[in-house]
């Protein structure tokens, strides 16, 4: 069985107390020779990973070179999105390839969803204890 990493729930709003604890995961994203560290929100209800526009731009991904447009649902439906594949590293785990819906929206958080974050990592939430464990797939 692969080693797992333990991460704390992060206080998203200091005024809101325990209600504002979110499972945010520090993640290093790479594209060619550029990298950036971001906080990804583990979102089990999100069908796909979502990359906000500014992170893709910071990594040097060009909009026209990204894949064909895709249609997202919900509030993100109003923004154009395209597929982007990045190398992602979490803790001491080896890098994996994550595919993102790169949205033109700037406001959205970095979302880690079913395709394909939760296909690469098993996650066990211990919300009452304010931490979660992440294990690379076996």
């Amino acid at each position: 069985m692969a080693d797992s990493g333990r991460f704390p729930f992060i206080q998203a709003d200091e005024r809101s107390g325990e209600a504002a604890l979110l499972p945010q995961l520090p993640i290093t994203l790479r594209h060619e020779d550029r990298s950036t560290i971001a906080q990804g929100l583990l979102d089990t209800g999100a069908t796909v990973n979502v990359l906000p526009y500014h992170i893709g731009a910071e990594l040097g991904v060009t909009w026209d070179a990204a894949g064909r447009p895709i249609q997202l649902t919900g509030i993100l439906a109003q923004h154009e999105a395209r597929p982007v594949i990045l190398s992602a590293s979490i803790g001491t785990f080896g890098p994996v390839r994550l595919v993102f819906a790169w949205t033109r929206s700037e406001d959205v958080p970095l979302l880690l969803g079913q395709v394909n974050f939760f296909m690469e990592f098993d996650v066990c939430f211990y919300r009452s204890r304010k931490y979660f464990d992440v294990t690379p797939k076996g």
């Binding site: 999100a46 796909v48 249609q71 919900g74 819906a101």
Partner: peptide, 13 residues
Amino acid sequence: WSPYNSFDAANIL
């Protein structure tokens, strides 16, 4: 923000 049930997008990805 969660894109619920974006199955077509997920398949393209």
